[in-house]
Amino acid sequence: MKIRLKLYGTLPAHYPGLYPDSGLIVDISENTTVADLVERVKLPQEHVAIVAINGMLAKAEDVLPEGAEIKFFQPLNGG
């Protein structure tokens, strides 16, 4: 099954050319979790602090559904 992965913030700049604006289509097996995906695409774990699955914040152990849109954000702060 396939999912679409988009990087946010300055993450794409770390991997120039690898992640088109429309997202990267990744082939995954069933029961792949957020943590598995981070490992699979070889992003340093500390760079991926915030993950959304289909527009909702997700946790490392959440399983990716078929056709999902996954967004990776780096650690943020604010105020």
């Binding site: 913030g9 300055t10 959304a52 914040l57 954000f73 943020l76």
Partner: peptide
């Protein structure tokens, strides 16, 4: 991050 996006970087994650 702030130099590139300013605080607007929060829009997506807060919505998520």
């Amino acid at each position: 991050i702030l130099p590139e996006f300013g605080t607007a970087v929060l829009v997506e994650p807060i919505n998520a």
